[in-house]
């Protein structure tokens, strides 16, 4: 049985001091996984996509945006007791089953 690292839920809510924050996900090529690539600040999804396109048009075939406040984040970062002795990558859970 593999011991799972302790995670806590990180601060939710709106993340932009002004405007609205949108998480950005990009895919380089059709057979690549989509990956998180930061966030943009924009009023709505179309504007967020437009802004992300200006930043990643040279790179990405696909761009997804998601309101930052809609994400539920669970992390070992900041969790009580989180330290260097907590593995950075979670062991494959299949090993425990």
């Amino acid at each position: 049985m593999v011991e799972r690292p302790e995670r806590s839920r990180t601060e939710g809510g709106e993340r932009a001091p002004t405007g609205r924050e949108w998480e950005v996900f990009v895919r380089d090529a059709g057979d690549d996984p989509i990956r998180h690539a930061g966030s943009v600040r924009a009023r709505g999804a179309e504007t967020a996509h437009e802004l992300a396109s200006r930043l990643f048009a040279w790179y990405a075939t696909d761009i997804w945006v998601c309101p930052a406040e809609e994400m539920s984040r669970f992390s070992t970062h900041g969790a009580e007791g989180a330290s260097a002795d907590v593995p950075r990558e979670e062991p494959r859970t299949t090993e425990g089953f």
Binding site: V26, G38, S39, R41, H77
Partner: peptide, 23 residues
């Protein structure tokens, strides 16, 4: 208008070192 990450989620150093971010 662009953020690489948030220090509530990851340490500043981890965010700043992450050159898998294409930008």
């Amino acid at each position: 208008t662009y953020s690489l990450g948030n220090v509530r989620d990851r340490s500043f150093g981890d965010i700043w070192e992450d050159e898998s971010n294409p930008l």
